[in-house]
């Protein structure tokens, strides 16, 4: 990737005293970071985050960091709230009527749920790839160009589309049919198109919700390789059901599970968060060990 690192662009302190997600910015990637961050420094931080759907507390008390240029995986049984936590990281939960986030999610030290934060600005910097490939019913080119156009990103559109498609390891397969509908691609290609669409706007963090669950092993392998490549430039959070995948690609792993409280209500909880190697070889919690060794009920 020849993409300049978004993190090196700083905003002059006199213009915008605080970080600038609430203020409209010109161009892309004007993330107002006061100090350049080293790889591994926390980009995002969750402090005692609980997510409610109406009165139902789907996930309770989650605290974990998301580190710069690292891949953080979330694993755990179905329904334990992985997607819920992931969606709270770029305020996609705002779209669910009745959903509410308690606790604190910070991004470069800034509370994402503060009153004056604009969710649109948040999502510009924290992009998302969904479980089901969902290209727009537009041409391949327009799918990738869409984010560039709506965000008014300047520069040669064609070059930027090519760069994004190359970054998503799809360029060679589609370079001769950019005018064809994005829906004409195979499932794996569609998912890579969605990744291209996301990286085209050069976000800071990419959230992926089971991006390979609809794909065969070869396509999965391509996307995993791609994630390693992308982690050089971006910070990645991935939800996966596939423990081997988590072990293969991630640097950090968070293990969630669902617990029944004394009122017989199920809540998702973060059981363990640590470096992937440690979590899989030497878990400190019995439940983690049971899950990764397949003894989960």
């Amino acid at each position: 990737m020849t993409a300049p690192d978004p993190k090196v662009e700083t905003v002059t302190a006199s213009d915008r005293p605080s970080v600038s997600i609430n203020a409209p910015t010109s161009g892309w990637g004007a993330v107002g970071v006061d100090t350049p961050q080293a790889a591994g420094a926390p980009v995002m931080d969750l402090r005692d985050v609980s997510v409610f759907y109406g009165n139902y507390e789907a996930v309770r008390g989650t605290s974990m960091p998301i580190r710069q240029n690292q891949i953080t995986a979330m694993i755990g049984p179905s329904g334990c709230g992985k997607s819920t936590i992931l969606r709270s990281l770029n305020r996609m939960n705002d779209l669910v009527p009745g959903a509410r986030v308690a606790g604190k999610v910070t991004y470069h030290g800034q509370d994402l749920y503060a009153k004056d934060v604009d969710p649109i600005q948040v999502r510009r910097r924290i992009g998302m790839v969904f479980q089901k490939p969902n290209p727009f019913p537009k041409s391949i080119f327009d799918n990738v160009a869409y984010g560039l156009r709506i965000n008014g990103i300047k520069g040669n559109l064609h070059d930027q589309v090519e760069e994004a498609l190359t970054g998503a390891a799809l360029w060679d397969e589609v370079k001769d049919k950019l005018k064809m509908s994005g829906l004409s691609l195979s499932g794996g290609q569609q998912q890579r198109l969605c990744i291209a669409r996301t990286i085209a706007v050069r976000p800071d963090v990419i959230l992926m919700d089971e991006p390979c669950s609809a794909l065969d092993p070869i396509a999965t392998g391509k996307i995993e390789d791609l994630m390693h490549e992308l982690a050089k430039t971006y910070t990645i959070v991935i939800v996966t059901h596939n423990m081997q995948q988590a072990a293969r690609v991630s640097h950090y792993t968070a293990f969630f599970t669902a617990e029944v409280d004394d009122k017989q209500v199920r809540h998702g909880r973060l059981v363990e968060f640590s470096e992937t190697g440690k979590l899989f070889t030497n878990p400190s919690d019995k439940r983690t060990e049971d899950y990764i060794t397949g003894r989960f009920g």
């Binding site: 770029n90 996609m92 779209l95 649109i120 600005q121 999502r123 510009r124 992009g127 998302m128 969904f130 969902n134 290209p135 727009f136 869409y146 984010g147 709506i150 965000n151 969605c194 669409r197 996301t198 706007v201």
Partner: peptide
């Protein structure tokens, strides 16, 4: 959702 996640209003 895909569009909103790209930062579209």
């Amino acid at each position: 959702q895909a569009s909103l996640a790209l930062g579209a209003r």
